[in-house]
Design a protein around this nucleic acid. Structure first.
Lengths: 234, 234
DNA sequence: CGTAGACTATGACAATTATCAGGTTTTAAA
DNA sequence: TTTAAAACCTGATAATTGTCATAGTCTACG
C-alpha cells in the first residue's frame, strides 16, 4: 500500500509536467496533493454539467473527455476535447462563474479533483503559476478562434477531414492503423458541428474514395495527403 | 501643452479602469506611461496583420476595431470587436507567438502602443496583474466558446438578430434610435459568418417585418422582443 | 443466447445558404 | 458638380446541409 501511496502523490505524477501545475513549488504541490481527491469516471458519465458551480478543477490523469454545450433540441456542440495532462474547469474557477460547458467522459477516465482554494491562493502568490495558467489559456483561446474561423470558412467535408487529421496527430493510431481515440459518429458530428446523418454520409464517401478505412466504429486514415488537400480546398 | 501632457499620462486615463492595467501599482503604471506611444488610426486602416510578430499590446482609447481572419478566397471572419478600454494583442504577447488575427479600425481610433517589456516584466512580478489579465482572458474564452456554439446551433437569421441585440447592448443607440456602431453589411456578414448577399437579404426581411428600421447603412432596432424571440427559436 | 436499445447506414426530400449576374444607390474624391 | 468606385440590393439558380423515414448492425446484459 505504501507503493500505491507513493504513486498517488502529485509530486510523482507524470501528468503534471503537461499542465500549469508544473510551475508550483514543492510546498505548493504538497498542499495540492494533500487536498486532491482521485476519482474514476466511467465512459459516458459526466464530470460536471453546464450551470454547475465548480469548487475546484479537474486534472485528467488518464482518458479523454468532451467539453460540450447541449442545445434545447438535443444536439450538442463539442467545443474541446481534454486529455491526459489537461486541467478542466479552470476557466470557471478563475472567472468565478458557473461552468458554461458540460464535461463527459469519452473513455474510462482517472481524474483528480483539486479544490479551488489551493489553486486560487497560489494564483495570488506565485506569478510563475499564474503565468503558466495564462499561457495555457492563451493557447486555448487561439484554438477557439481557429474553430470559429473553420466553422465559417470550411465545408462540412473539410471540417470532417480536418477532424480526422487532428485526431491522428493528437491521439495517434493503434497497431492496426486505426485512430487510437474511437468516437461515435454522433460525437464526430458534434465536433464539426453538423448533423449525424451528414457526418455518416461524408464518412461513407471518404471510405468509397479510399481516403479512410473503417472497422465498426473505428476509423483509419488511408490517404493523409488527399485528406489534407481537401482541408486546404484542393 | 502641460494640459495635454497631463491628459496623455496613463495615470490619468479613464480607459485604464476597464482593463487589466488597473491592477498595476503607481510605479508600474508610470513605467508603462513612459514607454507607451499614442497613435491615431484612421477608419479602415490596419493596426496589425495576421502573422506579424507583436512587440507589445495596444490599448484602445477610443474607437472600435475588428479582429478577423482573412481567408485566401477573400471572405473574412470577424472573431471579436474590441472597443474603448480593451487591450488587443495580449494573447500573442503572452504566448510569444505571431498574431493569428488581423486588427482593423472600424472607426477612427486612438490607441496606445505599450511595448511588451513592461507588460511581461510586470506579469512576472505582480500577481494581481497576472490574475487580472487571466480573468479577462477567461472571459474572452467563454465568449469564443459561445460563438462556436452559436455558429453550429443557430441559423443565419438567428445569428443576425443576435448580432443586432449585441450591438445595441454593447455600444448603445444614438439620439435617433439607430445603433451607435454603424457597420457595413459586409462586416455584419463577417461577424455572423455568412455571405454578404445572405446578410442583406435577411436585413431586408427584418425591415419588412418591422423588426428593424434603417437609414442608409444605419440600423435601428424596432422590435427588440421579437428579435429576441427569433434568437431563442420562437 | 437472445433480445432491447443504441448506433450506423441510406434514400428521398425539404430547407437553408451560397453564388452569379445584374441592377441601383451612396460615397468620396477629382 | 461630375464621376468612379464602393457599397447596397434583388432575382435566379445551384450547392450544401438538414430532416424524416426506414432498415440493418452491433452490443451489452439478463
Amino acid at each position: 500500500m505504501e507503493q500505491e501511496e507513493m504513486r498517488s502523490r502529485c509530486e510523482n505524477c507524470i501528468v503534471r509536467q503537461f499542465n500549469s501545475l508544473r510551475a508550483l513549488t514543492k510546498e505548493e504541490l504538497k498542499k495540492v496533493s494533500d487536498s486532491k481527491i482521485s476519482k474514476k469516471i466511467k465512459k459516458g458519465d459526466t464530470i460536471f454539467q453546464e450551470g454547475e458551480k465548480l469548487n475546484g478543477v479537474y486534472c485528467v490523469r488518464d482518458g479523454v473527455s468532451k467539453l460540450a454545450k447541449l442545445s434545447p433540441n438535443g444536439k450538442g456542440q463539442i467545443v474541446k476535447l481534454a486529455t491526459k495532462g489537461e486541467l478542466i474547469g479552470q476557466r470557471s474557477v478563475i472567472a468565478e462563474e458557473k461552468v458554461n460547458l458540460s464535461a463527459t467522459a469519452l473513455s474510462d477516465m482517472e481524474v483528480c479533483f483539486i479544490p479551488k482554494e489551493g489553486i486560487v491562493n497560489t494564483l495570488h502568490t506565485n506569478p510563475n503559476f499564474s503565468l503558466e495558467v495564462l499561457r495555457h489559456m492563451a493557447h486555448d483561446l487561439k484554438e477557439a478562434d481557429d474553430v470559429i474561423v473553420n466553422m465559417s470558412q470550411k465545408t462540412v467535408k473539410q471540417r470532417i477531414a480536418e477532424a480526422f487529421l487532428y485526431l491522428k496527430n493528437t491521439y495517434g493510431e493503434d497497431a492496426d492503423g486505426f485512430l487510437s481515440l474511437t468516437l461515435s459518429r454522433d460525437d464526430i458530428a458534434s465536433i464539426v458541428g453538423t448533423a449525424t446523418e451528414s457526418c455518416i454520409r461524408v464518412i461513407s464517401e471518404f471510405k468509397k474514395k479510399e481516403l479512410i478505412h473503417t472497422s465498426g466504429k473505428k476509423i483509419g486514415i488511408a490517404n493523409e495527403k488527399k485528406l489534407q488537400d481537401m482541408v486546404d480546398g484542393f
